[in-house]
Design a protein around this nucleic acid. Structure first.
Lengths: 255, 255
DNA sequence: CGCCAGGTTGACACTTTTCAAGCCGCGTGG
DNA sequence: CCACGCGGCTTGAAAAGTGTCAACCTGGCG
């Protein structure tokens, strides 16, 4: 068990303003605990978890939390802000593989090869809790509830990606965009934000990249959804006016 | 620790011929060990692993190893044969999310919700090793090397799915099919089979489903690849004649 | 104040799907 | 043993959906 917390320099990324603070991150006080950590955990276990979270780190908008090829050291839980993960193909094409908000875990891609396979980029000024992976491995040996929870988190990521595959493989552009808006809305709700009104943190191009379409198609669809009275859009601002209408597009499958 | 191996009935799936045999599956003797299990494991640890694999199970062609909604009990390592996993959407559309061959692990989708979220279907008469998940959880508490290995396997599955997302999101049909053939070829090689000649275990429709295109498109592309001298196709038989040509299609990105 | 990234919209091109017809090969049953 | 049926595959022609290219707009920031 670690009793004195050493402050050591962490991953200095050239040319970027990365701040690491030892604030004693304290899962035990964190209001994201429900999202982030195993439910029904005992208070002694919670103390152990507090050992796990090494430090917080601030990441400025458009800076990378890590990059493809970086050695894998830690997982990160988003405290505040918004990230995307981006996979770059050998010929330079890239694709957004995920958008991450508060309480979600970034970095699972690195475990398998001990190096990151995607870039994680902040879409707004953000803060993460850093979870050194070696500690997580060790602690999960002693703490079955943590282990089980961690496995569930990974499995759910696999399942999420399955449904993205289905989205990309079988759905039309309008269905994908409806699914995307509904998914965002739902995640806002579970964080206590308004369900039907939000600011997009990403550009049309990033949305399109995630959904496998061009930015022009995204833009046209926003316009069309608005014309049909489903939503109200003004640049990054979106208000869902007819959620059932969106659900119908997403699921009803006119064919 | 379990010393006497009880033979209890396992998941009786109605109307399907599922055979479970207690053959003392014995990872220690298994020629798939390199694929399936952590490298550099000690022999005492290997004995522990043998405890983990509860039984083998035969699955006939077109039967399901498990179905969406089935309670999650175990992971399965493919011993022989070939499987697909299939995700079904609420409106009935479905998509193949993976093809699995010997040494690969099926069932990770179930951990997160304790119920399976896809169907796993044998594409030929197959046999799997059953790994009860509760045992894996428990044993991974005691055995760091197993724990680490398991986490890597899950992470690699996430990474694999990332690259399928890229395939579906950014590549054209011909690029996807080339990527598919190259991937199959590579996996054959790592199992000691011929790299450039194989029998497809899946239909055009299943390939198309996995790659997000219609079976007619798959068929046309096979014909075109053949006409261009890249491959030789006769129904399920495929021979790669110009692997560099395929790689060029996959990666070169004519645009 | 002017630039520029990000967004919108139109016209047209291209890829892939859809629909349709026909072929092949294999297993089943007469 | 052969005929039949049927799933799986191939191919063509037309339609639909999305991408490409281009012009223009807007708002924020240096």
């Amino acid at each position: 068990m670690i009793t004195s917390h050493r402050i050591t320099p962490i991953a200095e990324v050239e040319g970027e303003s990365v701040t690491v603070s030892r604030l004693k991150a304290a899962c035990s006080n964190c209001n994201l605990r429900e999202l982030c950590m195993p439910a029904g955990i005992s208070s002694t276990e919670l103390d152990q978890l507090d050992e796990l979270v090494y430090a917080r780190r601030k990441v400025k908008r458009s800076d990378a939390l890590y990059r493809t090829g970086d050695p894998f050291e830690a997982l990160y839980a988003v405290r505040t802000g918004f990230f995307k993960t981006r996979l770059t193909f050998q010929d330079g094409r890239d694709q957004v593989t995920g958008f991450l908000m508060a309480g979600e875990l970034i970095g699972l891609d690195g475990i398998g090869t001990e190096a990151h396979t995607v870039d994680a980029v902040a879409l707004e000024d953000s803060e993460v809790c850093m979870i050194p992976y070696a500690k997580l491995e060790a602690l999960s040996g002693e703490m079955p509830s943590l282990r089980t929870h961690f496995h569930k988190v990974m499995s759910r990521e696999i399942v999420r990606e399955n449904s993205v595959m289905m989205l990309l493989g079988t759905m039309r552009a309008e269905e994908r965009l409806a699914a995307f808006l509904l998914n965002l809305s739902q995640r806002m709700v579970s964080r206590g934000y308004a369900a039907l009104e939000f600011h997009l943190r990403m550009t049309r191009e990033e949305i399109g990249s995630y959904l496998g379409m061009k930015l022009e198609t995204v833009s046209r669809l926003f316009s069309r959804f608005q014309a049909e009275g489903l939503i109200e859009v003004d640049q990054k601002y979106v208000r869902i006016k007819d959620i059932d209408g969106l659900k119908a597009i997403y699921a009803h499958h006119t064919h």
